[in-house]
Write a protein that binds this DNA or RNA. Structure first.
Length: 525
RNA sequence: GGCCCCAUCGUCUAGUCAGGCCUAGGACACCGGACUUUCGAUCCGGUAACGGGGGUUCAAAUCCCCCUGGGGUCACCA
């Protein structure tokens, strides 16, 4: 039998990282078993524009490299793949259940049901719905229908039975039906509820394995009952652990976005977003934040890294392998190696995957990755000459592994700013140019020497600087920090002489003049 | 509260089903050292865990029971 798995996102306008991980496991299981992965869209009661809200979600799938065999854009033999278009199928199933007596119309108005529930709560007993409508005669029911008395349809739960699943990750889990109230499967307005629609869809789409997050475990008994009542075979369930916020064991939720900001492990991710996103013309919000996939794409993370990190949330290959390619994960992914306990998202671990995969990238790939960031931040023009490209390449070579995400290039914007626009870090100027008494005189002397050095390549300037140090009888540290601040505006950066060579003589001298001017006027006042 | 799930270093996890190879392995983080003009990187080294209590057994992280702790879910949401 062909393995078929699915993921059923609601068109919300963003892809949650936890949902992405669930989708990934479904996709991996399908790919590992040469099966099919289906995307189905849960767009019942959607007010917003579905197509627009679906865009970022499909984009997240494409970015991560998760292709789907059936679903939006690609179609398939089991469609439609939008729940909103499957209404007819739900009603056929409903009629079937009603006919077989497996479901019934409940004419109790909502306030009566609510009162029942409150009464049970008050008496501290378990609420079970009172099946008053089951007492109705056929004539009563007929009359109710003719006079349009509103009703919902409930599944008739056989209270003397037990339901069980053999979960692929959790093993045998059993529920006592005597504790399960009859669930509503169709609203009074005629629309189906999730638990019901989902079962119909899964059955009709011939889904063999339902892989979903643990929070759905309590939906399982009802769905199992539904599969049985409809005469469908029960699919294999696999309830994978949900993802928790760093240092917590609570489910990572979009509702706790503000709380996450204060989470020590997440703080850095938000700070990066606050600093970088505006420069890219974006801002932190519902759709772009550390728990959405778009955040990582926008900030120039590698999809290989996110794929790797997501794979490791609740799954491992063995006792030591951490860095895995898509192929390796597909080849080795089994539900057997999915863990039961919650999986915590660790931004630092994620970053270590990112560093690993960035290290695998060629210079060309890095240039390509960095360009959109530079262009969006208007640090480089949209029409690039070969010289521009090779300059970006040389900067990246100098940056070496300081470039961890593509957007990190913005931290080294001094290579791309004009000499007049360059911002000097005030603290750095203070510490390196103003505070040491000898800094300014030395820097001025060095400036004159640099102006006359015959070539401005890294080797020559380095040799020159060492000669300068000997002549002045100083240590490297007494001049090089001042030089760095003067030339880049910052106190840290790539190798000093690489920086000089990249910028070239004219730009270095111009920047040194500006820095000297700033420092002098600051110390004068 | 009912039902259900879970429990190994600070974190993610290997080991649990088929008890001994576990003086509990790896990774991230952290601490120290080396290198270094800064930052970063790299290389060496180090600290650090089986929630508690009972069993079973020659032997328990692993099997059984109880306790404790944490979590999920209880809609005419998905």
């Amino acid at each position: 039998m062909t393995v078929r798995t699915r993921f059923a996102p609601s068109p919300t306008g963003y892809m949650h990282i936890g949902g992405m991980r669930t989708a990934l496991f479904n996709w991996l299981f399908a790919r590992h078993n040469n099966g099919q992965f289906i995307l189905r869209i849960d767009d019942t009661d959607q007010q917003r524009n579905v197509e627009e809200a679906l865009g970022p979600i499909l984009q997240a799938f494409r970015w991560l490299g998760l292709d789907w065999d059936e679903g939006p854009e690609v179609g398939g033999d089991h469609g439609p793949y939008f729940q909103s278009q499957r209404g007819e199928l739900y009603h056929q199933a409903l009629d079937d259940l009603l006919l077989k007596g497996k479901a019934y119309r409940d004419f109790d108005p909502p306030d009566v049901v609510k009162a029942d529930r409150e009464a049970a709560e008050k008496e501290k007993r378990n609420y079970m719905n009172i099946r008053r409508s089951l007492e109705l005669s056929d004539e009563d029911i007929q009359r109710n229908l003719e006079t349009d008395v509103p009703y919902v349809i409930r599944l008739f739960v056989p209270r003397d039975e037990k339901v069980a699943i053999n979960d692929a990750v959790r093993g045998e889990v059993e529920w006592d039906c005597s504790l399960i109230p009859d669930p509503v499967i169709m609203r009074s307005n005629g629309s189906p509820l999730y638990n019901f629609a989902s079962v119909i869809d899964d059955a009709q789409l011939k889904i063999t394995h339902i892989i979903r997050a643990e929070e759905h475990l309590s939906n399982a008994p009802i769905q199992v009952l539904l599969f049985g009542a409809l005469g469908y075979e029960q699919p294999q369930f696999a309830h994978i652990p949900f993802i928790t916020a760093p240092g917590s064991n609570k489910k990572l939720s979009k509702r706790d976005l503000q709380k996450l900001r204060n989470n020590p492990a997440m703080r850095k991710m938000f700070q990066v977003a606050d600093n970088i996103l505006p420069r890219l013309g974006l801002e932190v919000g519902e759709s772009v934040n550390p728990i959405t996939v778009e955040y990582y794409e926008r900030l120039g993370f590698l999809s290989e890294a996110i794929f790797n990190a997501l794979s490791r949330l609740g799954w491992s290959l063995d006792d030591k392998t951490e860095n895995m390619s898509r192929e390796t994960v597909i080849e080795n992914f089994t539900l057997e190696r999915v863990i039961k306990s919650p999986a915590g998202l660790d931004p630092e671990k994620l970053m270590s995957y990112q560093e690993h995969w960035m290290g695998q990238k060629s210079l060309e790939e890095k240039v390509t990755g960095v360009l959109p960031c530079l262009q969006r931040a208007e640090l480089i023009s949209d029409s690039l000459s070969d010289d521009d490209l090779s300059y970006v390449g040389r900067v990246i070579v100098a940056l070496d592994d300081r470039l961890k995400t593509f957007s990190d290039i913005l931290q080294f914007d001094d290579f791309f700013m004009s000499d007049d626009d360059l911002q000097f870090d005030e603290k750095a100027i203070q510490k390196r140019l103003i505070k040491p008494d000898d800094a300014l005189p030395l820097l001025k002397k060095l400036r004159e020497k640099l102006a006359t050095v015959e070539s401005f390549d890294a080797v020559t300037t380095e040799a020159m600087l060492h000669q300068f140090i000997e002549e002045e009888e100083i240590k490297v540290g007494q001049i090089i920090h001042a030089l760095r601040v003067a030339v880049s505006g910052k106190s840290t950066g790539p190798g000093m002489f690489d920086c000089l060579e990249l910028l070239g003589r004219e730009r270095c001298l111009a920047r040194m003049d500006r820095a000297i001017g700033i420092a002098e006027s600051a110390s004068a006042s």
